[in-house]
Amino acid sequence: MAEPGTGRALRFAGLDFVARPSGALWWPERQTLILADLHLGRSERYARRGGPLLPPWDLADTLDRLGAEIEALQPLRVVSLGDGFDDDLAGRAIAADAARRLWHLAQGRDWIWVAGNHDPLPAGPGLPGRSLDELRDGIALRHIAGQGPDVSGHMHPVLRLAGRNWRCFVLGRDHLVLPAFGTYTGGLAITAPAFRRLVPQGLAICCSERMFTVPLAGDGPGMRRGSGANGQGRR
């Protein structure tokens, strides 16, 4: 295993990836950085819809962390694995300074917005990159897991262990599910039936310095504990 803090190497569908402590997935062979569920513009959407007035820095915060990953890895390609925006309007109404930062981050890279259930439409003209329903590059990269093998997001997996929730990657035979990268995102405990169906057996890789892993079968805590209700990983 590599140095603490740099991630955990994993092999999935015959390909080599690195699960990063940030929750991003690094694909060295393709120099591709993959992020799921950025949910950019969530606080703005809540305020717009008359919901709670949340602190408006989730956008900047998510972009800060995204920028740090891009800085560290210098990817040739960046893939937002769906729900990049909290809704289609959030993508169009994104604040000018945030859009500028995205343009800056995307400079010299192939930037792909995969469609999600929150943002089904192609990204607006004010944004860099191109929009796809899914990306196929030897393996399917899509928002919601389908016919495996595929890499997907959407589920926001978290694992409860040692008294707290950890955002985690879920690695099974057919599916690799990424944790949500966005700041204002919750999580679904991997004890939930939805995960059992998707990944009957496999591993959870928890976002932390050392990216420790937990089995997802038999009587590990991943399966037997927990209420299946709300959980959130902390950063």
């Binding site: 602190p55 709300n230 950063r235």
Partner: peptide
Amino acid sequence: RQTGRQATFSSDIIYDTLRRHD
């Protein structure tokens, strides 16, 4: 209470964000 877990996120996250920025 929402059972669609992904949609809700904890006050911890709001706290962390608020503390960092304000």
